[in-house]
Each structure stands twice: as C-alpha cells, then as structure tokens.
Design a binder for these strands. Structure first.
Lengths: 226, 226
DNA sequence: TTATTTCTCGAACGGACGTTCGATTAGCAA
DNA sequence: TTGCTAATCGAACGTCCGTTCGAGAAATAA
C-alpha cells in the first residue's frame, strides 16, 4: 500500500479524480457515446493503456462521474433540509441547492441529465436508485407545500407534472446557461424560484410571500402552520 | 421519373418516410451515436446497402428527421397564431401546440431535444436556424405578455430565463411522459400552462384568468388591450 | 416482347473503437 | 544499495462501424 498524501488522499485518488473531471468535461462536450478513450487519453495526457489502471472500462468512468455527482447534490440537500422545517422554505432550499450545485458543476450535471440512459445493468440501477431518492424527496416537499398553500384541492396542480416541470426547468440549464455570462446564479435562482413557486402554489395570498430575495426566507417560517 | 402514386407521394417518398419514422424511434431509444445503420436496416427490413439508396449518410437521416419535425411544429404554430391577436392567448397557443405536437411525435421530438448537437456544419446551421426562429417567436410572445400583464417592471421575470424555463418544462417531457399513461395530453397542457402562466405573469389580478380549461380562452381576448 | 430506369442487396473495404498484454520505469522501504 | 510494489506505456488484437461497389431483380415504358 502506498503512503498516504496529505488530507488522506493518495496519489491514486487525486489522479483518478483528475481523470474523472476531465472525462466529464469531454462527455459533456461531445456526449458519452462519441467520446473515445483516446480523447480522454489525449486530454489527460495519460496513455491509453494507462487509463485502465484507474478504471476498468469507459462505462465505469461514466458511472463514477454520475454516482459521485448525484451523491454530492443529495448529501448537500439533505444537510440543508435538516436546518428547516417549513415546507415553502424547503422548496426554496431544494431549488437553490440544485441550481447552485448545477452551476458549479456544469459538466458533471450535464452528463447526469443528458446521459441518464447511457449506463446499463447494475450501474444503471445504482444511479437510478439515487435519482429516485432525489425526485421522491422533491415530490414529498411539493406535496407538503401544496397541502399548506392550496386548501382547495380542485385548484391544485398534478404532483407528477409539477415535479417533472420543476426538474425540467432546472435541468434544461445545460442547454443554455453560462455561469460566466450576464446572468448570475443568484438571479437565476431568484427567477426560477419565482416562476415555479408562483405557478405551483396558485391562488393563495402571495402578497405575503416576498420573492425579492432569498434572504427574506425567514419571514415565511411560520406561514400557515397552525 | 417514376409514376406518381395517389396523393402525389411516390413509392420513394413513402419508403423514405417509413425509414425516417423507424430511425427516429431507434434514435430516441438508443441515442443517435449508439444506433448503427445495421440497427436501422434490421428494423426497416431494408438491407444495409439499400438504405443508402434513400439517404446519403447516417447523419442525413438525423438531419431529415430534425428538419422535418421542426418545420412541422413551426408551421402549425404560425398558422394557429394567425388566428389570435391577444398576447396571453398566444402564449396559451404556443404551449398547447408544442405539447400536443410533442405528445403525438414523441420519438421525433425526443431526437430534436436530445440530439441538438449531434449534427455538424451546414446541417447543424439549418436546424439551428429553425430553432432560433422558434425560440425567438416564443420570446417575443413572452415579452408581449409581460408588457400587458406586469406593469411594474421591477416585478418582472428575466425574459431569457423565462423562455428557457418554459422550454425546459416542456421538452423535459421526453424523460417521463407516456402518452398512453394516466395523464392525458389535455391535463398535461392544463397543468403546465397553469404553472408557467401563474409563475411568469406574477402578481396581476389572476382571478380574471380562468385556468379551468382551454375552452375559456375567448374570455381573455380583450383583456387589458386598451 | 424488349429496353430502360428504378430499386435492392451480398460482400467487402478501410478505419476507428474499447480493451489487453507484456515489458519497463518510478517510488519507496529495508 | 537491494527488493518489492505501484504506475506507466507502446503495440497490438479482435470487433464493429459507416460506407461503397457492382451485379442483379423488379417495375415501368416502348
């Protein structure tokens, strides 16, 4: 066993991570299926054969990228959700967490969104499981928000449609958003939050809900909880 | 020149259309890059070499599918928009047109949404042109709606974000929607229209805008036009 | 019928792909 | 130093890909 570098990451871990980051960038650029191991070899400056010291196959690279990335959004989300108990605020946290993570990891998240069906077998099941966990969590939050904000069941939006509409709005990002462009992540979050929340929550007295900025979240924390 | 069959479509045209429909289905299933000409040959029962009597390359198949499909949504949309002059109603028509066309042409629309970058050169430019035309049209409608419905400029949502949010919501369909499932196209249209319109239009007196059904569109036709 | 065009296909070509193998080098412990 | 493990790589293997070619069948026109 080789000696352990500072921070507990071995040389091996660091290089693997570098390969994964590079591969994610190329997968995002040219799509998984039209990326070749030679592309990755060229970009990482690791020989073609050398790559196979760090992964067992091209598909495993894709799996490691997706699984790792999903694990991290999910973990960050669960941690942030632990700090709040208000449904509306939870929804806000969900959106903010997803978008800011997406913006900070565009390549990986594009690969996650765009190559969802490029894995097979156990690897597909593994990532699918995390996806299901994530969307189920989102759906539960939406359900909670709906119970609290739309007392008239007739006026409610279908939960399945709403969940996928939300993820569609957010995940479509990879088709247009440039983190270094004119629109800041904060603006993106604010705009999408406003569009979705107004639209989803319907005809409640929205005057009570300030959408001017995330910083005013706290004012909602006791909203309609009785 | 061969004789012309009824309806003005030659044998050639019909068989090409059949090949395109079949190819679209397979592209949608397995993605463009991992579909082989042998897959298409098998599914169409046309020999591998025979396919090249109907197209000059695999990429041309993708191009023909995308160009044809985009042309058809665009044409249908422009025709329907010609029948209305009210901004809000135009937005409704845009959404209804897009979603119902999508639901009726899931494979082609998935290929359009998912393989947007799989063409190159002139073919890419051609399809990109149609896409730009389509999104510009949508953006203009949103702008019009905004001017009419959100007199307070400070409360307005960013137009770029709103446009992509709308298309994200709609195009994400291919990841989950089953036209033969529980949710009808009409329900899908109604739900997504409600979410987006409520969200986008913000704090206007929405009580005036019934979202119960498409059939009540007419009641909006003179809304805030003075 | 024959002549001509339209359509079809088996077989192959050249190239690119993912992966493997065996040998070589670098890093570290003794 | 010596000895062992971790890391690296050039070269190749077998396979599958998109595409082509030339011959033949089917349809149409004379």
């Amino acid at each position: 066993m080789s000696s352990v570098a500072k921070e507990g990451f071995t040389r091996y871990d660091q290089k693997l991570e570098f390969i994964l980051r590079t591969a994610a960038r190329i997968f995002a650029d040219k799509s998984y299926h039209s990326t070749t191991m030679r592309d990755i070899s060229r970009a990482t400056e690791v020989s073609l054969a050398g790559l196979y010291y760090y992964c067992s196959s091209k598909e495993e690279l894709l799996y490691l990228i997706q699984d790792n990335c999903f694990g991290r959004v999910l973990e960050r989300l669960e941690q942030r959700l632990g700090e709040t108990h208000n449904a509306v605020e939870k929804l806000r946290v969900l959106i903010e967490n997803h978008l800011s993570f997406f913006a900070a990891n565009m390549a990986e998240m594009k690969v996650l969104s765009h190559e969802a069906d490029s894995l097979a077998g156990d690897r597909y099941d593994q990532v699918s499981g995390k996806k299901k966990q994530y969307t189920t969590l989102a759906r539960r939050i939406l359900e909670e928000v709906q119970l609290v904000s739309s007392p008239d069941a007739r006026a409610r939006v279908d939960l399945t449609v709403a969940t996928y509409a939300l993820f569609g709005m957010m995940n479509w990002m990879y088709n247009w958003y440039d983190p270094r462009g004119k629109i800041s992540v904060a603006e993106l979050v604010e705009n999408l939050t406003r569009i979705f929340m107004n639209g989803f929550m319907g005809e409640v007295e929205k005057k009570n809900l300030s959408f001017a900025g995330i910083s005013e979240m706290e004012s909602l924390s006791v909203w309609r909880e009785a």
